[in-house]
């Protein structure tokens, strides 16, 4: 069995998005319930979340953007830069807390206190650009984690696997010229789904060319196509890149019961991808896998999806 860290804090529920939004606190409650029901909770190492230092937010985002977000919350604005981004007065603080929790998990993994970690945080991050909030995301959590790995622990090759059903435009753009961070994403084809990026021909730029890889899936394709693309694209790419740490943008919104998408993945398929990621983690990264929650909106399916996900991290 592995020692798995668990970044959970009730305050993540205090980021409120109003009555008509899919990215709601109940998502985490559902996931927590699944972990409890699976009797996993007592075997997890709880990692307390403390607000991230501004320095780490600035390792990805522009100072002016960070200030804009903070002020919008202070003034009680309920929307930031687009009607997609519904929020409340506390959202800025909660976003800082989410990043802080993730960085604590990264630190614990790198210092060998735990083997891997699951970070069910809110708000999510992979759509957030350097200076723009997008698609329910404010700070790009996973990008900040990658910078932290590079700058604090001298990690030379970070591998990011994004299996949220939407393309992580923010993460891709932040690292598209950086050959030390490999960004892989599998998602619903951008001509059919948000955010309209992540096409097959987007492969990075300049020194980072070849270190971005996208596998778009057409609506209606299912588990078989998903698995085929992972085997065809991700496995050989990571075999060559040899990531020293793997970060996962974990999204469950590709599930067939999730209204956000149409690629019809089964519960079993989400276990399959996590097992594949764990194998790569053992092969290249000394088991160092840090999973960070992005989307996933089916309250009926989240308990089982998150329970299975965590059980695989724990090696149970």
């Amino acid at each position: 069995m592995r020692r798995t860290g668990f970044v959970y804090d009730e305050r993540f529920l205090r980021h409120k998005t109003g009555p008509y939004h899919p990215e709601i606190p109940d998502r985490l409650v559902a996931g927590y319930k699944g972990i409890q029901e699976g009797a996993l909770l007592e075997h997890l190492t709880l990692i307390p979340a403390v607000p991230a230092r501004q320095k780490w937010i600035e390792s990805v985002h522009h100072v002016a953007y960070i200030l804009r977000f903070e002020e919008a919350c202070l003034y009680g604005m309920t929307e930031f830069e687009s009607p997609d981004n519904q929020m409340c007065q506390e959202s800025y603080d909660i976003a800082l807390l989410a990043v802080g929790g993730i960085l604590a998990a990264v630190k614990a993994v790198m210092e060998g206190e735990i083997d891997n970690a699951f970070c069910p945080i809110r708000p999510p991050g992979h759509h957030a650009e350097i200076a723009k909030a997008m698609g329910f995301c404010y700070f790009n959590n996973i990008a900040i984690a990658a910078r932290y790995l590079q700058q604090e622990f001298g990690v030379e090759r970070v591998g990011i696997i994004d299996f949220d059903v939407h393309h992580g435009n923010g993460t891709q753009h932040i690292f598209e010229e950086d050959s030390s961070v490999f960004y892989y994403s599998i998602h619903e084809h951008p001509s059919f789904a948000f955010p309209g990026t992540g096409r097959e021909f987007e492969k990075g730029a300049n020194a980072g060319f070849g270190y971005t890889l996208n596998s778009p899936m057409l609506p209606g394709q299912g588990d078989d196509e998903f698995k085929m693309l992972i085997e065809r694209d991700l496995i050989p790419a990571f075999g060559t890149f040899q990531p020293q740490v793997i970060l996962a943008s974990t999204g469950f919104d590709g599930h067939r019961d999730d209204e956000m998408s149409g690629i019809n993945l089964s519960t079993e398929c989400f276990s399959w991808i996590m097992e594949r990621i764990m194998q790569m983690g053992d092969q290249y990264a000394k088991g160092r896998v840090i999973s960070i929650l992005e989307g996933g909106y089916s309250l009926a399916r989240l308990p089982e999806l998150i329970r299975n996900h965590v059980a695989i991290l724990m090696g149970r």
């Binding site: 008509y20 939004h21 899919p22 687009s82 009607p83 997609d84 759509h127 997008m134 698609g135 329910f136 939407h166 059919f192 948000f194 955010p195 057409l218 609506p219 209606g220 209204e259 956000m260 149409g262 909106y297």
Partner: peptide, 23 residues
Amino acid sequence: LTNNVARVKKKLQDMGYTLLDPM
């Protein structure tokens, strides 16, 4: 221009419209 279409899709269906299979 949104990531949040589930609700509006349901609304259009409730109004009697058929949503097309993207494929």
